[in-house]
Amino acid sequence: MSGAFPAPYGGHVPVLKLGDVLLVTLQGDLHDSTAEQLQQDISQAVADHAVSGVVLDISGVEIVDSFLGRVLAEIAAKAGLLAARTVLAGMRPAVAITLVELGLTLPGLRTALNTEDAMRLLGVEVPRSIPGAAPGSPRPGRTRQESP
């Protein structure tokens, strides 16, 4: 089976533990079998480390289909059963539109603009950038914008 459809390069998705939170960063196209493996990895990691939250960063994902949408919902449901909250971070506009058109609004799944916001949502203290500046935008960028 996996011989007929070899997993693409980087088929394994790393699950990182940051304190009380698991950080999972998805990049590029996700193969179906990789997604299945990821579900197991996350469940296992949540159970092993007894974390309180999972951050799924999908800012590197350009295309989703109904399968991946379901996988995301299932990951959240499984983590929820293991008493961990899941936050979906950094979804791209095109991906959001596709999911909505597919009718997958992922109810009950928490979302955030980026990983920083997602961490904050899970109660992890992340120092804020300069007050008034857009989160994540460096100071030089801001001063350059303001001087005409």
């Binding site: 979906l88 950094g90 979804m91 609004t105 979302t111 603009l113």
Partner: peptide, 11 residues
Amino acid sequence: KTVAAARLMGA
């Protein structure tokens, strides 16, 4: 749809 898509993006 717009509201749902914005929510998915974390807004």
